[in-house]
């Protein structure tokens, strides 16, 4: 099913989505990859504030290429989500409701998704040029020294993603291949 979703991404909105749904996101999302996640975890441990409010937030696992003049961002496709598995359950427990990346997640993430009624979306890997067209603004909000890994606040307009793990913990990757497997 195709649907359009605006941020903030509440649990009510998350509950309506099912694996295989094509979702067009509009609103505000935040980028963070390995190094930014590590710093956020340190901030949580030390009781320091996070770069943005996690409540009903969507984190996009992405590190862009530099923007050319007159553009908000460069190429901007998803990175492998599994590298964030060590950190994601903590952030989900603190209010994050959506993750965008690509590739499989571990069982701890799946359990955190179920526990919190969150959703894991896949963006098309290797389609960074195309995906950049759905980003209308980008601003570094934390950890600027990390370069491409800094936390960015993105404004997106009909950003295309696919639900690969829904709030019930169903995993599209687990079932997708079997349909076309001819071994």
């Amino acid at each position: 099913m195709d649907c359009r979703i605006s941020t903030p991404f509440t649990k009510e909105k998350a509950a309506e989505l099912h694996i295989g749904d094509m979702v067009y996101l509009t609103g505000t999302i935040y980028t963070a990859r390995d190094a930014a996640h590590k710093r956020m975890m340190e901030a949580i441990r030390q009781g320091r504030p996070l770069p943005f409010d996690l409540h009903n937030s969507i984190i996009y696992y992405m590190g862009p290429t530099p923007a050319r003049d007159g553009r908000p961002i460069g190429s901007a496709g998803p990175t492998t989500a599994g590298r964030m598995d060590a950190y994601a359950p903590t952030l989900l427990d603190l209010g994050e409701t959506g993750m965008i990346g690509k590739g499989r997640r571990n069982e701890a993430v799946r359990q955190a998704v179920i526990r919190n009624g969150a959703v894991y979306f896949a963006a098309i890997g290797g389609a960074g040029a195309l995906l950049s067209k759905a980003i209308t603004s980008a601003e570094v909000v934390a950890y600027e020294d990390l370069g491409t890994e800094a936390v960015r606040k993105l404004t997106v307009q009909e950003f295309p993603v696919i639900v690969v793990m829904d709030s019930k913990g169903n995993d599209l990757y687990e079932i997708a291949a079997s349909k076309y497997c001819t071994e």
Partner: peptide
């Protein structure tokens, strides 16, 4: 024949 397909979402 594995069925993994484009983006790993199933296919030939």
């Amino acid at each position: 024949k594995t069925g993994i397909g484009p983006a790993g979402l199933g296919g030939t």
